[in-house]
Design a protein around this nucleic acid. Sequence first.
DNA 1: CTACATGCAAAAGATTTGCTTTGCG
DNA 2: CGCAAAGCAAATCTTTTGCATGTAG
Lengths: 143, 143
Amino acid sequence: MKKSKNQISRIEKLCAESGVKFTHQRKIIADVISNSNDHPDANEVYLRSNKIDPRISLATVYRTIKLFEEHNVLNRIELGGKRARYEELNENEHHDHLIDIDSGEIIEFVNEEIESLQMKVAKKLGYKLVNHRMELFGKKISK
Amino acid sequence: MKKSKNQISRIEKLCAESGVKFTHQRKIIADVISNSNDHPDANEVYLRSNKIDPRISLATVYRTIKLFEEHNVLNRIELGGKRARYEELNENEHHDHLIDIDSGEIIEFVNEEIESLQMKVAKKLGYKLVNHRMELFGKKISK
DNA sequence: CTACATGCAAAAGATTTGCTTTGCG
DNA sequence: CGCAAAGCAAATCTTTTGCATGTAG
């Protein structure tokens, strides 16, 4: 959502902690994603990273994205299209998405009430809620 | 969720209405999906249909699934895996899914309260809610 | 130094499509 | 009959992987 200056150090920290090498390309890819607020897909991340440093390959982008996803730095969003799209995941902020079905625009929102209801639903079914995904599809009113 | 005997006629009706031919293979594919309560993917639908009638090809299954999806007979569910999975969509029943992250089991549930909150959220953002997708990922309690 | 990461190109997996044949209405 | 639909195989698109080389720690 918003750019966070300390995202870079968060990744660095993460790499150090998990014994993962903090390479040149990982830094750039992390930067690119951190500075994107438009939910790019893997190829888009590749294009942007590659523009900054042509040494970066698509395979590395895919590998890095997967790595970041596993370490909860990145969040994958599936919007029905074929490509998965990604966004930065911050530690204490969780949001969901509303997609404008006409323009494709993605709006982020937070709703605590829904979150707590989800937890309640899961518990009632005998589960502890670990994660969730919610997308609303809407049409702009007044147009 | 539950098998509905009149699903077949619903599809037939739909075909008639939209000037879509009600072919042998479409009938079988509709039947298969209607009688599946385990959210099969395209290939699984193909295997089951093909077992009933070997004349059915994978391409037809894909084309038919897309057709049904466009006509709101089918609902696509994306579970992070690579293949899209499908379920029958009934006119007046809407449910969401809770996925057991250990076993992969899918549990369907309905929660009116969440639905109305979603509508409220969309409205507050200036949108009319047309559709939504919600998946909860949980771990079984007491095991 | 050494093990892990990258680049490249090829493979794999899912879905779509072109073209000819088939069959519904 | 005529045109939409099916079959088959080839094409496409996204993501993954094997292998030789490069580089962070």
